[in-house]
Simulated scan of single mutants.
Amino acid sequence: MVQKSTHTAEYAAMLRLLVERRKSLRLHQADVAATLPFKQPEISKIERGERRIDVVELRMICTALHMSLPEFVAKLEERIAALHATESAADARAAEPSAKAR
């Protein structure tokens, strides 16, 4: 069964990056919402992964967070690459025979 994209580690990384960016700017959800066609409760739902966003909405949010969409995507790609590298290393360790089995 195919996993919904909102339930993936990659989507969670995207949301964490949005929240981290907002907090680094010392903005509240209401501050971000004031510049968008969303209200604060929608920003909260987006950040919690309860409301899915499309690329146009992501671009608007990035603009509200004083960053371009390409800049955000570059940072997200770095996060996802690191995530996959960590998963690959964990998989490799799990595949190794344990010291007790030797």
Rank of each mutant, 00 (worst) to 15 (best):
E47K: 01
H28T: 15
K4W: 00
V56D: 04
A12T: 12
L18H: 08
M67R: 13
G49K: 06
K23D: 07
R48C: 03
E87H: 14
A95H: 14
P41A: 09
M60K: 13
R102K: 10
H7I: 02
A64P: 09
S24A: 14
I46W: 04
L58K: 03
P37M: 06
K23E: 11
D31W: 02
F72C: 00
E71H: 05
S5H: 13
H7V: 03
V55Q: 03
H84Q: 15
M60C: 01
T6G: 02
E42L: 10
L83I: 14
H28L: 15
L58A: 02
L36T: 01
M67D: 00
V55W: 03
L58V: 03
A9K: 15
A99Y: 06
E47F: 01
M67G: 04
L18M: 09
A9Y: 10
A13W: 05
E96M: 15
A81T: 13
R59C: 08
S44Q: 04
L15Q: 03
A30E: 15
R51L: 08
A74P: 02
V55M: 07
L36Y: 02
V19M: 09
A33W: 00
S44T: 08
V2M: 09
V32L: 01
T35W: 00
Q40H: 04
A64K: 05
R79F: 07
L15P: 03
E77V: 10
K100Q: 09
T63V: 10
L76I: 05
I61H: 03
I46D: 00
I43L: 07
A64M: 05
A9D: 15
E10I: 06
E50W: 01
Q29H: 03
A12N: 07
G49P: 05
F72I: 03
E57T: 11
M14A: 15
H7E: 15
E42V: 10
I46F: 02
T63Y: 10
R93C: 06
R21W: 02
D91F: 11
S5D: 13
Y11L: 01
L36I: 00
H66L: 05
V2Q: 12
A101W: 11
H7K: 13
I53F: 06
A99C: 01
V19T: 13
S5I: 12
E77N: 14
Y11E: 06
V2I: 11
T86S: 14
E47Q: 10
M67C: 12
A89R: 14
T6E: 12
K23W: 00
R16M: 08
D31F: 02
F38C: 05
E42R: 10
H28G: 09
R79H: 12
H66K: 08
E57P: 01
E87S: 13
V19Y: 05
A81Y: 08
V2F: 09
R51N: 05
R26Q: 14
E96F: 06
A95G: 13
V32W: 01
H28P: 00
L27F: 11
G49V: 04
K39D: 15
E42N: 08
A82Q: 15
T63P: 00
S68Q: 09
R51T: 04
L36P: 00
C62F: 05
I43V: 12
A89W: 05
F72K: 02
F72D: 00
A85L: 10
K23S: 06
K39F: 11
L17S: 10
F38K: 06
